[in-house]
Design a protein around this nucleic acid. Structure first.
Length: 109
DNA sequence: GCCAGGGCGCTAA
DNA sequence: ATTAGCGCCCTGG
């Protein structure tokens, strides 16, 4: 699972659900989140590249802690990922496209 | 018609 | 019970 996260290319992002699926934990999106939450910086996991897409969000920072969220945003922009004021990230552009996973209906565009 | 955002219920650890 | 989630549906801009 952590291995999966490390696979996320720089400048790209993936959703918790996507990571969980790739890790072999279907429906375990929150498990991924928990793993990241408990992970230590020494693990050097690019947790910043993992975002959520719950509710009406199509892909945005899902960290509750405002500080952590700000950090993630900064790190992402540092990699070249544009983050909206609300922490929204254009999955259509920066979304990771692993050959092993398929996306939902690309909803035009 | 398009987009972003919020509400609701569900699943898994 | 709690949560760094997810999808569907509705609303406002």
């Amino acid at each position: 699972m952590k291995a999966v996260i490390r696979r996320i290319p720089r400048g790209r992002v993936a959703t918790y659900g996507q990571v969980a699926e790739l890790a072999g934990l279907p429906g375990g999106a929150r498990v991924s989140a928990a793993a990241l939450k408990t992970s230590l910086p020494s693990e050097r996991l690019p947790w910043q590249r993992v975002i959520g897409k719950a509710g009406g969000a199509r892909g945005r920072i899902a960290i509750h802690d405002p500080v952590g969220a700000a950090v993630q945003r900064q790190l992402l922009e540092d990699e070249g990922v544009a983050v909206g004021d609300t922490g929204l990230v254009a999955l259509d552009v920066y979304g990771w496209l692993p050959s092993t996973t398929r996306r939902r209906k690309p909803r035009r565009r």
